[in-house]
C-alpha cells in the first residue's frame, strides 16, 4: 500500500515543498481561468446604480398606470405569439442617461424611495457575494482552510481574496475589537477611482458617490451569509474617510472608504 504513494499525492503530512507547488499550481490554475476585460465588469457594476434608480421610477409609474388602467381597460395588448416573432425595436430617445439617473437619486427627497433603490443595489451585491465565496472556496485555493475558521479569518478572507477578485486589490486596513466589530478600510476603492472629486468636495457631490459604496456592502453581507452569519446578524455601513497622508495622486478620488461591519453572535464570542 505504501508503495502506491505517487509524487502528486497530497496528504495530511504535506511537506513545505508540496505547499509551495500547491501555491504555484493554484496560481497557474487562476491564470488558466477564462477572463474578460476588467473594464466591462467595472462598467457593469457601476451601471447597477442607475439601473436600480430607473427601475424604481418605472415601477412607480406602472403602479400609477395600473390605477388608471382599471378605469379604462380597453387597450388590447399584444398577444404572446407575436411577441417572440416580432423584432423588438426600442426607442433610444426614451432612455434616460445614467448620469441623470444618478443625479436624480442623489436628489431624492423621499427617504423611503431612496432606501428602496439602495436595497436593490445591496441585494444584487448580496447575491454576488453569496455565490462568490463558493466560487473562491471551490478553486482549491491553498490559502483557505475553513475547518477552524473563526470570524477574524472570514473577515481576512473578505479583505484579501474577495476584494482581490472583485477589485484587483486587497483592503488596505482591517481593524477589529475582537468582539464582532470590524472596520475594513480601502483608501483607493476602485469603482470610484476615476470619479474626479476634490478633497474639499461638497456634501452634495459626495452624496452622488454614496450609492456606489452599497454594492460591496451587499457583497460583504452575502459572503458572510454563505459562511454562516445570516443577513439579520450583520450590520454593514460604508462611509467616506480622509486618507492618512496625501501620497496618492490628485487624479484619483480624494477619499477613502470605511466599511463598518458589526456582527452579533448569539452564543460564542
Amino acid at each position: 500500500m505504501d508503495a502506491m504513494i505517487s509524487p502528486y499525492a497530497t496528504g495530511d503530512n504535506a511537506t513545505a515543498s508540496s505547499v509551495m507547488s500547491e501555491q504555484h499550481q493554484f496560481q497557474l490554475f487562476e491564470e488558466s481561468l477564462r477572463k474578460v476585460n476588467i473594464l466591462v465588469f467595472q462598467m457593469l457594476i457601476n451601471e447597477i446604480i442607475p439601473l436600480s434608480m430607473g427601475l424604481e421610477k418605472k415601477l412607480e409609474r406602472a403602479n400609477n398606470d395600473e390605477l388608471s388602467d382599471k378605469l379604462s381597460k380597453m387597450e388590447v395588448t399584444e398577444g404572446e405569439e407575436s411577441l417572440s416573432t416580432v423584432v423588438p425595436t426600442y426607442n433610444t430617445k426614451d432612455i434616460i442617461p445614467s448620469n441623470e439617473l444618478i443625479h436624480e437619486l442623489s436628489e431624492l427627497k423621499d427617504e423611503d424611495k431612496y432606501n428602496k433603490v439602495i436595497d436593490r443595489v445591496r441585494n444584487i451585491g448580496y447575491q454576488v457575494g453569496n455565490k462568490l465565496s463558493e466560487l473562491l472556496i471551490f478553486t482549491n485555493n491553498p490559502n483557505l482552510q475553513f475547518k477552524e475558521m473563526d470570524l477574524l479569518l472570514i473577515m481576512k478572507f473578505i479583505c484579501r481574496d474577495v476584494w482581490k477578485q472583485l477589485y484587483g486589490k486587497q483592503i488596505d486596513n482591517l481593524k477589529t475589537n475582537h468582539r464582532g466589530t470590524f472596520y475594513l478600510i480601502d483608501y483607493d476603492y476602485q469603482p470610484i477611482r476615476e470619479f474626479c472629486i476634490e478633497e474639499n468636495a461638497l456634501k452634495k457631490e459626495l452624496k452622488l458617490v454614496e450609492p456606489f459604496l452599497e454594492f460591496p456592502v451587499g457583497i460583504i453581507k452575502g459572503v458572510l451569509a454563505s459562511l454562516g452569519y445570516s443577513k439579520e446578524q450583520v450590520i454593514c455601513l460604508a462611509t467616506f474617510i480622509d486618507r492618512p497622508n496625501n501620497d496618492i495622486p490628485d487624479t484619483t478620488f480624494a477619499k477613502g472608504i470605511s466599511f463598518h461591519v458589526q456582527i452579533t453572535t448569539q452564543n460564542n464570542q
Partner: peptide
C-alpha cells in the same frame, strides 16, 4: 495588454442583475 478579471465573476454578477430584474 488589457487588465482582466475572472469571467465567472462577470457571469454571476450579470446573473444577479437579471435575477433582480
Amino acid at each position: 495588454r488589457s487588465e482582466r478579471i475572472n469571467a465567472e465573476l462577470f457571469t454571476l454578477t450579470y446573473g444577479a442583475i437579471v435575477s433582480q430584474l
